[in-house]
């Protein structure tokens, strides 16, 4: 009996400690609902104002389920064709610390939704808004900007780069390797 208790206690503790994130597994699927304009620059005449945050961002950012969905969609919508598995190709690298249009999840969302002039297609009419948020959350993870406890883990197939949950934060790397 005592032994059983001794076993049970750590088990219960472990279970309690394992706080699960909230999962909204069926996000609404309406097209293009993220209408909020996102400035392309932080420069503003008359002094900088706080950058606008989208209230959707919080529910997607750093969320393990949404990031793993984003990873799947990253191949599904051929992002990987242009950005490879984050190292870039026809499009720029997304795993490094260099951002042309901003690294916030809102900026990345705007990039995917509206496109960018030098060859980033606009996916706003092709991908439901919540999936664009999932992609954005995953792109943040590619750059090492997601907690390792939530970022996707290693692939089943070819190891193309260290898994997302082991990628160091690109910004702290100093220089590109």
């Amino acid at each position: 009996m005592r032994q059983a208790l001794a076993l049970l206690l750590p088990l219960t503790l472990a279970l309690v400690a394992c706080q699960r994130e909230e999962r909204d597994t069926r996000p609404q699927s309406a097209l293009g609902s993220g209408e909020q304009p996102t400035p392309v620059t932080t420069l503003e005449p008359g002094g900088q104002r706080p950058s606008p945050t989208d209230n959707k961002a919080a529910s997607f950012e750093a969320n393990a389920f949404h990031m793993s969905e984003g990873k799947r969609l990253f191949s599904w919508f051929n992002c990987s064709g242009c950005h490879a598995n984050g190292g870039g190709g026809m499009g720029p690298a997304l795993m490094d610390e260099k951002w042309l249009y901003g690294s916030s999840i809102e900026s990345i969302h705007a990039t995917i939704r509206d496109g960018r002039p030098n060859g980033m297609p606009s996916f706003g009419q092709k991908i439901p808004d919540d999936q664009i948020w999932e992609l954005s959350a995953y792109v943040r993870a590619l750059g090492g900007n997601a907690p390792s406890s939530a970022a996707p883990q290693r692939n089943d197939g070819m190891m193309v780069h260290p898994s997302e949950n082991r990628l160091p934060d690109a910004a702290t790397l100093g220089k590109s390797p």
Partner: peptide, 20 residues
Amino acid sequence: GAIVSGDLDPRDATAALGFV
């Protein structure tokens, strides 16, 4: 040479269709 002209990230073995 896309790794230089496109400033690609060599940590991804598949960058530039694997050339990187």
